[in-house]
Each structure stands twice: as structure tokens, then as C-alpha cells.
Computed example of a mutant assay.
Amino acid sequence: MRYSEDHKAKTHQRIIEEAARLFRQDGVGATGLQPLMKTLGLTHGGFYAHFKSKDELVEKALGHAVERLNTSLAIQSQSLPAFIKYYLSSAHRADPGTGCPLTTLCAELGQRGQPSEITDSMVNNRLAMIEAALPEDEHADEQAVLMFSAMVGALLLSRSVSDPALSDRLLKTTRKLLIEQAEASVEA
């Protein structure tokens, strides 16, 4: 049975969306092509009608995850404190499959020797967004690096500890201190 081009495009997009969710949730290495395709009701062999390799899918899925996150952040965060609150929230921690891909994928891609230009772009965009929200001074770029690194690190750590109180403490403390830093910068 022949499918229309529209069907193929929709299937292609479904694979990217599910891969983006699973890669963020479980990691690239832990997400096999066969289980991914089975989740979608497709065969493993059908994967190669859409992608040359898993590496190609990783890049496309990461791009999709970044695009979704950018849309979500544009809606949810109109200020730096709002962005910090969202990023370091228990809801964001609890749903890695729809959240920031950096906490799941960066270490794994680096360990695999596969840094991504999409990751570069995402990090640069976040740094620029944070820096733009800070008052112009000679250290705003450094402050943005510190703030975003602390956010990603706190979220990553909060997801990796087994003690719920410790997980909450990591988010709450980092969130509190970064918001104080952001507000103090604006007031200065």
C-alpha cells in the first residue's frame, strides 16, 4: 500500500517529536530505534525511510526540542525572574520529556564526542536573553554565564538525587539566590 507524501511528512514529524521527548527523558543512548518506532506503531526498518542514521535524528530531535522550549519560554517568561522561576520549578524538574534538553543531552553528547551546533545556538540564545535582561555593564556577559550555568546545574542535580527534600532545596535555593541577583542587578 502506497502512502501519500503528506502521510510520510506527518510520520516523519511524529518520529521527531517522540524522539525529542524520549531523548530528553531517557537520554540518547538509552533510547533504541526499535522501541522508539514501536511506541509509534511503526517498524524498525521504516526508520530508514525517514532518516539516514540515529545521529541525524538526534540533531533533528534536539532542534525540535529547542524550538518547543523557545515557544514555551516566550509564553511563560516575560522577565528574567519569571524565566528563573519557570526553569527552576518543580514542574520543570518533574517533566524532563518536555523540558530543557540541555540537562539530559549535553553531558551525553559531550561524552560521545558529538557536541552539537544546535546546543551552541541554544546556549548562546539563553545567555543573550539573560544578558539582555541585566543592566548594561562590563560584567553582564559573565553574570549571564554564571546564572545560566547555575540554573542548568541545579536542575540537573535536582533530577539526579533520590532525596525529595534535597531536590527541592537545590531548586529553591538556586532560584532564590538567582532571582535576588537579577533583581539587585536591575536596582543597581
Rank of each mutant, 00 (worst) to 15 (best):
K176P: 02
A65C: 10
I179W: 08
H12I: 12
H64E: 15
H64P: 08
I16R: 03
A49N: 14
S53V: 05
I118A: 15
S121K: 15
E56S: 06
P96F: 00
L171V: 04
P81C: 05
L105S: 06
P115R: 08
A144N: 11
G99L: 03
A65E: 07
P115T: 12
V161Y: 04
D26E: 10
E187P: 03
T104W: 01
R93H: 00
F51S: 11
V152Q: 10
Q114V: 15
S167M: 04
L134W: 06
L178Y: 11
L155W: 00
K8A: 14
F148L: 13
G113W: 09
L88K: 00
A30Q: 13
E56Y: 00
S89N: 07
E56I: 06
S53Y: 00
P101I: 02
D26G: 05
L178K: 08
E17R: 13
L155P: 01
E180M: 04
L88W: 01
R175A: 13
A94F: 06
R175P: 08
V152P: 01
T103M: 10
G29M: 15
S4E: 13
A132W: 14
E136T: 09
D55T: 11
F47W: 10
G41F: 02
T174Q: 11
M129T: 12
C100W: 03
S185Y: 05
T119G: 05
A140M: 05
E131L: 08
A133I: 02
E5C: 01
I118D: 14
T43P: 01
A188D: 01
H50Q: 07
Y87Q: 04
Y48A: 11
E183V: 09
Q181S: 15
T39Y: 02
T98L: 00
A188M: 02
L22R: 12
E18D: 13
S160D: 04
G153A: 15
S4H: 08
E5M: 03
I75Y: 06
N124W: 09
K10V: 14
E180V: 00
G63L: 03
L134I: 04
K52W: 00
R93E: 01
E117F: 11
V123K: 06
Q34W: 02
L171H: 02
L102C: 02
E108W: 04
G27E: 04
A9Y: 03
A9L: 08
S90E: 09
T98C: 02
A82Y: 04
A144S: 08
L127D: 12
L33T: 15
I118C: 14
V152Y: 06
E56M: 05
Y87E: 03
V152G: 02
L170T: 12
P135H: 00
P35V: 06
V58M: 09
S77P: 07
E5V: 04
L33N: 10
R175K: 14
E117A: 15
A9M: 07
K176G: 05
G46C: 05
V66H: 14
N125Q: 12
D168R: 11
L155Y: 00
C106W: 05
I130V: 15
S4F: 04
V66N: 12
A132I: 13
L166A: 14
V145N: 14
G99W: 03
G63H: 04
D55Q: 07
Y86R: 07
R24K: 11
